[in-house]
Protein backbone atom coordinates (compact mmCIF):
# COMPACT_ATOMS: atom_id res chain seq x y z
CA UNK A 1 0.00 0.00 0.00
CA UNK A 2 2.76 2.43 0.99
CA UNK A 3 4.81 1.54 -2.09
CA UNK A 4 1.78 2.05 -4.36
CA UNK A 5 0.98 5.39 -2.68
CA UNK A 6 4.60 6.50 -3.07
CA UNK A 7 4.73 5.47 -6.74
CA UNK A 8 1.43 7.21 -7.48
CA UNK A 9 2.51 10.35 -5.61
CA UNK A 10 5.76 10.52 -7.58
CA UNK A 11 3.79 10.13 -10.84
CA UNK A 12 1.58 13.10 -10.00
CA UNK A 13 4.66 15.11 -9.01
CA UNK A 14 6.23 14.20 -12.37
CA UNK A 15 3.12 15.43 -14.18
CA UNK A 16 3.25 18.70 -12.26
CA UNK A 17 6.96 19.15 -12.99
CA UNK A 18 6.62 18.19 -16.65
CA UNK A 19 3.70 20.58 -17.13
CA UNK A 20 5.20 23.47 -15.18
CA UNK A 21 6.23 26.73 -16.82
CA UNK A 22 3.22 27.03 -19.10
CA UNK A 23 5.25 28.71 -21.88
CA UNK A 24 3.42 28.90 -25.22
CA UNK A 25 6.58 27.66 -26.95
CA UNK A 26 8.10 24.93 -24.78
CA UNK A 27 11.78 25.26 -24.02
CA UNK A 28 14.40 22.66 -23.13
CA UNK A 29 14.94 22.39 -19.39
CA UNK A 30 17.70 20.14 -18.04
CA UNK A 31 16.53 20.39 -14.42
CA UNK A 32 13.01 19.20 -15.29
CA UNK A 33 14.29 16.48 -17.63
CA UNK A 34 16.80 15.07 -15.16
CA UNK A 35 14.29 15.24 -12.27
CA UNK A 36 11.50 13.56 -14.20
CA UNK A 37 13.81 10.84 -15.57
CA UNK A 38 15.44 10.32 -12.17
CA UNK A 39 12.00 9.90 -10.58
CA UNK A 40 11.03 7.37 -13.29
CA UNK A 41 14.16 5.33 -12.52
CA UNK A 42 13.44 5.48 -8.77
CA UNK A 43 9.91 4.24 -9.48
CA UNK A 44 11.24 1.37 -11.60
CA UNK A 45 13.65 0.38 -8.82
CA UNK A 46 10.78 0.35 -6.30
CA UNK A 47 8.69 -1.80 -8.68
CA UNK A 48 11.59 -4.22 -9.04
CA UNK A 49 12.56 -4.33 -5.36
CA UNK A 50 9.07 -4.44 -3.84
CA UNK A 51 6.51 -5.68 -6.39
CA UNK A 52 8.89 -8.04 -8.23
CA UNK A 53 10.47 -9.13 -4.92
CA UNK A 54 14.04 -8.56 -6.10
CA UNK A 55 14.69 -7.50 -2.49
CA UNK A 56 14.43 -11.17 -1.53
CA UNK A 57 16.25 -12.48 -4.61
CA UNK A 58 19.84 -13.73 -4.82
CA UNK A 59 22.53 -11.05 -5.05
CA UNK A 60 23.08 -11.76 -8.76
CA UNK A 61 19.53 -10.74 -9.68
CA UNK A 62 19.77 -7.63 -7.47
CA UNK A 63 23.01 -6.68 -9.20
CA UNK A 64 21.72 -7.36 -12.71
CA UNK A 65 18.58 -5.25 -12.22
CA UNK A 66 20.58 -2.43 -10.64
CA UNK A 67 23.15 -2.66 -13.46
CA UNK A 68 20.35 -2.24 -16.02
CA UNK A 69 19.03 0.80 -14.14
CA UNK A 70 22.53 2.28 -14.01
CA UNK A 71 23.24 1.67 -17.71
CA UNK A 72 19.87 3.19 -18.65
CA UNK A 73 20.36 6.21 -16.38
CA UNK A 74 23.91 6.91 -17.57
CA UNK A 75 23.03 6.45 -21.26
CA UNK A 76 19.97 8.70 -21.20
CA UNK A 77 21.51 11.40 -19.00
CA UNK A 78 24.76 11.40 -21.03
CA UNK A 79 22.98 11.67 -24.40
CA UNK A 80 20.69 14.45 -23.12
CA UNK A 81 23.49 16.47 -21.49
CA UNK A 82 25.81 15.99 -24.48
CA UNK A 83 22.99 17.25 -26.69
CA UNK A 84 22.43 20.29 -24.44
CA UNK A 85 26.18 21.02 -24.62
CA UNK A 86 25.99 20.95 -28.42
CA UNK A 87 28.15 17.84 -28.80
CA UNK A 88 25.93 16.57 -31.62
CA UNK A 89 26.23 19.87 -33.50
Amino acid sequence: MLVWLGLSGISVLQLWLGSSGGAAVPVANAAITLSVLGMALVKVRFIMREFMEVRHAPALLCRLTDAWLLVTAISLFAIYLAGMAGTFG
Partner: peptide
Protein backbone atom coordinates in the same frame (compact mmCIF):
# COMPACT_ATOMS: atom_id res chain seq x y z
CA UNK B 1 5.60 8.06 -19.71
CA UNK B 2 8.61 10.10 -18.55
CA UNK B 3 10.43 10.06 -21.90
CA UNK B 4 7.53 10.73 -24.25
CA UNK B 5 5.21 12.99 -22.24
CA UNK B 6 7.31 14.83 -19.68
CA UNK B 7 10.99 15.47 -20.36
CA UNK B 8 12.01 18.83 -21.81
Amino acid sequence: FALVYLIR
